[in-house]
């Protein structure tokens, strides 16, 4: 039996269904990301697991225990909030020690465990500071230490890195993953940032409009998105209209043979920009724009099949300039065939 089991979880407000029958199983020690745009129901799901939002229907079972019977204060979950939600009137040590105090841990033990938790997040020297006087990254660590020190059975992270600048975010991502691996804590991360989800998690749950679009390891979800929504949400993608005839797929005059047979008719083709190369033959187009991005070049090409974005590595190869006529080519395995009616 899985560690956390969510069964047909639903949350309805007056007129809107925020979460629409989500079912999910999470194993002990797993790092899961709930990924989706704002309003997709990811935060509501997290709030229901934490117990701050009432469940309309469905069940949440943690370690064999139905959480409906457990008040939020007794669930023993570690939470890190988007705003960090540090107690502004308490020092860092008092913040981190609060949960232990609630658990009636004696003074000596408490001090020891607070010190250990601060050590873990690298803030040992700041125990007596007040949160107001700390940077965003430091506050974030305090929030993490406060959640970890109570030795939670489940760690819930609600957009924990979204208030940090890019460089700090990368740094914290590494640390977060590191700490999670060391403690072996089952972790659920809520985020709208696909790169964050991919960098951190064992599995990604892509949510849209209150329902699950896809569940899977980051690589698989990126490589084989199950829908147009997932394809466009997980990284940048080109979606082109095409046709299918048995095992063969065509876009304008270009033709590929994809392994499996399928129903004939109009389809959509999704291709990642970095999988497209400039060649002698292929889909014709004119370069409208090219932008230097350090390790790569970004191209916007007006092709026969509509606008296409191409990312080319910045190696020694010669690349076309603005206004050049080019041919775009890609391999059959680099493209994903999606039904046309599921387009968003």
């Amino acid at each position: 039996m899985s560690f956390l089991k969510i069964e047909r979880l639903t949350k309805r407000y007056d007129h809107i269904t925020a979460v629409d029958g989500i079912s999910l199983e999470i194993e002990r020690g797993e790092f899961i990301s709930l990924l989706g745009p704002s309003g997709c129901g990811k935060t509501t799901t997290l709030q229901m697991i934490a117990g701050f939002t009432d469940v309309t229907s469905g069940r949440i079972v943690l370690d064999g225990r139905d959480l409906a019977e457990v008040p939020p204060a007794k669930r023993g979950l570690g939470l890190v909030f988007q705003s960090y939600a540090l107690f502004p009137h308490m020092t860092v040590a008092a913040n981190v020690g609060f949960g232990l105090e609630m658990r009636k841990v004696n003074r000596a033990d408490r001090d020891r465990r607070v010190a250990a938790a601060l050590q873990l997040v690298g803030l040992s020297s700041m125990a007596d500071r007040y949160p107001r006087r700390m940077s965003g990254g430091q506050q974030q660590r305090v929030a993490l230490a406060r959640a970890l020190v109570i030795e939670p059975n489940l760690l819930l992270l609600d957009e924990p890195l979204s208030n940090l600048d890019a460089k700090l975010r990368d740094e914290m991502q590494g640390e977060l993953r590191d700490i999670q691996e060391r403690t072996g804590l089952t972790t659920i991360l809520v985020t709208h940032d696909q790169s964050e989800a991919m960098a951190l998690s064992d599995r990604i749950v892509v949510l849209n409009k209150g329902a699950i679009e896809q569940v899977g390891p980051p690589e698989a979800a990126y490589k084989t998105p199950s829908s147009h929504f997932v394809a466009s949400f997980l990284g940048r993608t080109n979606t082109l209209e095409g046709n299918r005839e048995g095992p063969s797929v065509s876009v304008k005059d270009q033709r590929w043979t994809v392994g499996e047979d399928g129903n004939s008719g109009p389809i959509l083709v999704a291709v990642r920009p970095e999988r497209i190369s400039f060649g002698e033959t292929g889909l014709k187009g004119i370069v409208r724009k090219r932008v230097f991005q350090g390790s790569q070049w970004f191209f916007e090409v007006e092709s026969e099949a509509g606008p296409i974005v191409v990312l080319a590595p910045n190696d020694s190869r010669r690349l076309p300039g603005t206004g050049d006529t080019v041919c775009l080519a890609w391999q059959a395995e680099d493209m994903r065939v999606l039904p046309r009616d599921r387009a968003v």
């Binding site: 117990g51 204060a73 979950l77 909030f81 705003s83 939600a85 609630m102």
Partner: peptide, 13 residues
């Protein structure tokens, strides 16, 4: 900030 109170509850208050 409602989340500050929620944080306290999640810690067992």
């Amino acid at each position: 900030d409602q989340q500050i109170e929620n944080a306290a509850v999640s810690l067992g208050a």
